[in-house]
Computed example of a mutant assay.
Amino acid sequence: MRHAVAVSNGVRSLKFNYLCARYPALRCLHSSARRHSPQHPSSPDALDPRLEDLGNVIRDEYAIIRENYNAPKHAVVLAHGLLGFAELRLAGRYLPGVQYWRGIKEALSMQGVRVITATVPPSASIEMRAEELARDIAASAPGEQVNIIAGLDSRYMITHLKPTDFKVKSLTTIATPHRGSAVADFALKQIGDDRLAQLYYALDRLKVETGAFAQLTRDYMTNTFNPATPDIKDVRYFSYGAAMQPSFWSVFRLSHRLLEQIEGYNDGLVSVASSKWGAYKGTLEGVSHLDLINWSNRLKWLAGEITGNRQRFNAIAFYLDIADMLAKEGL
């Protein structure tokens, strides 16, 4: 028995060594290593201490991948957000596809988690995305119980579609605009009704769905969607938010400033206040919206290693810990 356990642990270590080799930007923690102590709130990268008034602040708990995580009893469904995709092939079969969940699905699978990646229309309405999500899960996990990591389309599906082909045990949302986003308000206002109609017409001719955009406004989410979409009692709801201060070169510099003035702390697209839903697990400090899906620039990681200013967030470690949390919740 001891030999079998040793072999199992050895295989797992080899798998994680492979993961670290394939994604060199990641830092992996082996059993002999120690975690870095949490960064003090007064450090240069830390945000205003008042951020803690909005809930638990997660500083560098996900800087490093641990060697062992628990796997939940039920499958985990990963469903992308607005303008997302499961796999994007820019050159057909001639070049490898670009994975939306780059490295995350593989890492979860290596820890014994059954992972289902769902694909929904990138910019369709919440209702249309929810219907496609339900079909996708039903085809992949018929008769099963699942934990979903997704957003508004999942909330709609759980409450309104009430799927019977599978059972949703939990929904975890990450920087999801449950109360809309001032960025959407601003964008639609700047475009204007006349030009917006023209834009929608042009996109429709290109067969690009546009239903999602108007549904991300604060007015729609607060006064229409949320009142009509209450939580279901036998489903567990968890959420995370993120907040950061963008650099001068950040693509989120302008949107962050707008959100900060209107909604407060944010990750460049969604505020912490809008992210909170159900059991709020905490705010990821110093993390942008793109960081959350492991799309950080590798040059950013390399520069951090060279200068000694190492990154404090590892998306793969974060998703592994969500799976671990679900396991500890008995899900």
Results as ranks from 00 to 15, higher is better:
K169V: 15
K169C: 11
L171G: 05
L171E: 08
T172K: 00
T172M: 06
T172W: 04
T172V: 08
T172P: 11
T172S: 02
T173S: 15
T173P: 13
I174M: 06
A175K: 00
A175Q: 06
A175T: 09
T176E: 12
T176Q: 09
P177L: 03
P177G: 02
P177Y: 03
S181G: 05
V183W: 03
V183Y: 06
V183E: 14
A184W: 01
A184G: 10
D185V: 09
D185Q: 01
D185T: 04
F186L: 04
A187K: 06
A187L: 05
L188C: 10
L188I: 04
K189L: 15
K189V: 06
K189I: 09
Q190N: 11
Q190T: 02
I191Q: 01
I191Y: 04
I191M: 07
I191K: 01
I191N: 03
G192E: 06
D193F: 05
D193L: 01
D194R: 05
D194Y: 08
D194W: 06
R195E: 10
R195I: 01
L196E: 07
L196Y: 10
L196K: 00
A197D: 13
A197I: 01
Q198H: 12
Q198E: 09
Q198S: 12
L199D: 10
Y200M: 10
Y200I: 15
Y201H: 15
Y201W: 08
Y201G: 13
A202R: 07
A202E: 15
L203C: 13
L203Y: 03
R205L: 15
L206W: 07
K207I: 04
V208E: 11
V208S: 00
V208N: 08
E209P: 03
E209L: 01
E209Q: 02
E209T: 00
